[in-house]
Design a protein around this nucleic acid. Structure first.
Length: 256
DNA sequence: TTCCATGTTCCGCA
DNA sequence: TTGCGGAACATGGA
């Protein structure tokens, strides 16, 4: 379930359980989860801090060694003392006897080492993180300038903005009252502004109630992802369609 | 058994 | 060059 808010939760979880402890061993249960490098250099080191950019988590092991985790579609973290979780793919052993598992049923995730988060972001052309305070409405406007195609496709493009996935793209467009199929060149400046604030609002709120351990409020579209459901905001009909090859839900009445 | 899934990448085509 | 549709990856749940 990992989009930006979920990865933010993982980053906090990682910070609570995995920092400032010497890694005494690493068990790669399924090597298909590895990226370009093996994880050996981490043994004997400890991780001192965690960062997130979009859907990527980075942990600093010092000397230009950073752990990078991407959660794919079903990635998750589990700190445990006894039995590892069913789909554990990599297990980090700590000197206190506890362990951290990266679990990932569908194996779309990646556990890798990189030299620096900034270099990684640059080399892979990742767009700005929408919750970065340096990301402004002006940046968002520039991003849309002279781009074609559907607005939802742009929101999903990690090279444009990093961190938004299928659920939050729908959620932000729903809040901004914009039809996901709308092309970028037909958006007004007021709509661009509304969408910018909707993106940040939705992501921030999602982090807040996840941190509280709660669920999405009923006014969120995500609670109504079913063809024919009622829009909690205007009473319109929720429709299902496909945009950018992804299942898309929207309110046929107030999203234009 | 069939369809679907909160992600990413690659390929061919327009 | 940009964008899009489709396929592939791997696996379980409804």
């Amino acid at each position: 379930m990992p989009e930006l808010p979920e990865v933010e939760m993982y980053a906090r979880y990682f910070a609570r359980h995995a920092l400032e402890q010497t890694i005494t061993g690493i068990r790669v249960i399924d090597p298909r989860i590895l990226g370009t490098r093996t994880l050996g250099p981490l043994v004997g080191r400890s991780l001192r801090s965690v960062r997130r950019h979009g859907k990527h988590l980075f942990a600093d092991a010092g000397d230009g060694i950073w752990l990078r985790i991407h959660f794919g579609m079903t990635g998750d973290l589990a700190y445990f003392e006894d039995d590892p979780p069913r789909f554990a793919r990599v297990i980090f052993d700590f000197e206190n006897g506890a362990h951290l598992a990266f679990e990932d049923m569908r194996l779309f995730g990646v556990v890798d080492l990189v030299h620096s988060p900034d270099d990684y972001v640059r080399e892979h052309g990742l767009g700005p993180d929408p919750l970065d305070p340096r990301f402004t409405l002006r940046d968002f406007r520039n991003l849309l300038h002279k781009r074609r195609g559907r607005i939802k496709a742009l929101l999903l493009s990690q090279n444009a903005i990093a961190g938004i996935g299928n659920l939050y793209a729908d959620e932000a467009l729903y809040r901004a009252s914009i039809d996901p199929r709308r092309t970028i060149d037909r958006m007004t400046d007021a709509e661009v502004k509304a969408l910018f604030h909707a993106i940040r609002g939705v992501l921030r709120e999602a982090i807040a109630f996840k941190a509280r351990g709660g669920d999405y409020p009923g006014r969120y579209l995500v609670q109504h992802r079913e063809e024919g459901d009622r829009c909690p905001r205007c009473g319109g009909t929720i429709r299902r369609t496909v945009v950018a090859t992804r299942t898309t839900y929207y309110c046929a009445k107030h999203q234009k």
